[in-house]
């Protein structure tokens, strides 16, 4: 488990991370979502003790990172696939990491196998493609067989096959009961992998919620209706107490309406329908709306609490 308590990082006047408190729990994939520059990488660097927090605290299984004995056996991280000496072979890169944490040499061969780099193990890392570099970084994260894994934008620049591989890997790691914390700036990516979601914008916590909850709360559902008799349909719906929204292309959007109900009304009043389809606004839109608000909150400084859904996470207390 990773616990952040009022974590703050200031660079001069600029606040990169602002009073973040949340916990990342075992047994699931927690998505760490925010637009570029929201403070995700800074937060992850503070978790690993690379950057010093200006205020607040972060603990790994209740302990500060620099107090962990052989930290790679507690938490494995992929922050930057290029954080490798290009002149060193993949094998030697992993070997020096393994030795520093008392991990046996045989484990290096194992993780190279897991990520599929065994054929190029003796090749210098600078000749690696982005995808291979990413796999090497993941091999480094898996090296100590840690209970916690952290990946910063792991699918960036990968081909579809690589993306699929990483998604499957993260899900299987979580299924083994490990803590998986993964950042992304793409909501669509998170929707496919994450069970839980932590959203930040401008360094502030915007949401800490289950994926299902987030989808339910943030995605607007409506029914899209098209008809050659728009006047009649809007009269019929108005008579039934249903408000409609006319879109530019001559269609109607009925908020929260049931498609069956609208279809039956239309049939009863003999209105011809060309389209009747339930719709769900994309999560990407919901995410944009959420983070756009953070910009507003920031601009009108002093605006009260950030809408965080902390309550959901309470149910997990005691399990970590």
């Amino acid at each position: 488990m990773i616990e952040l308590e009022g974590l703050t990082k200031r660079y001069g006047e600029k606040v990169a991370v602002n009073n973040l408190s949340f916990a990342v729990r075992p047994g699931m994939v927690t998505g760490f979502l925010g637009p570029n520059g929201a403070g995700k990488s800074t937060t992850m660097r503070m978790i690993l003790g690379l950057d010093r927090p200006t205020a607040g605290d972060v603990r790994i299984d209740g302990t500060h990172y620099d107090r962990l004995k052989d930290p790679l056996t507690y938490i494995g991280a992929l922050l930057d696939a290029k954080a490798v000496h290009g002149g060193r072979s993949a094998f030697n890169h992993l070997l020096c990491l393994a030795q520093s944490n008392g991990i046996p040499r045989a484990r290096v061969h194992e993780v190279l196998d897991t990520v599929g780099l065994t054929p190029v193990a003796r090749k210098k890392a600078k000749g690696f493609s982005l995808g291979m570099g990413q796999r090497l970084g993941i091999a480094g994260a898996l090296l100590g067989d840690p209970r916690i894994l952290m990946f910063d934008e792991p699918v960036n620049g990968l081909d579809p096959e690589g993306i699929h591989w990483i998604r499957t890997l993260m899900k299987s790691l979580a299924a083994q009961g490990r803590t998986v914390f993964v950042s992304s700036h793409l909501m669509s990516e998170m929707a496919l992998t994450a069970d839980h979601l932590v959203v930040i914008g401008q360094g502030r916590l915007l949401a800490d919620t289950s994926m299902a909850d987030f989808i339910q709360r943030n995605s607007r559902t409506y029914v899209r209706v098209r008809t050659p008799q728009p006047e009649q349909l809007s009269d019929v719906l108005a008579a039934a107490g249903i408000t409609v929204l006319r879109t530019g292309d001559g269609a109607f959007e009925v908020d929260g309406g049931k498609a069956e109900h609208i279809g039956e009304l239309a049939a009863r009043h003999q209105v011809v329908l060309h389209e009747l389809s339930p719709q769900q606004a994309s999560l990407e839109e919901a995410f944009m709306r959420l983070t756009a608000e953070s910009v507003e909150y920031h601009a009108h400084s002093g605006a009260g609490d950030v809408p965080a859904a902390r309550a959901w996470g309470e149910g997990w207390k005691g399990e970590g």
């Binding site: 690379l50 954080a83 490798v84």
Partner: peptide
Amino acid sequence: STGMIRTSLAAVPQ
């Protein structure tokens, strides 16, 4: 210059 320092210090935080 290679960025290896972040990997190194994550492995050896002392």
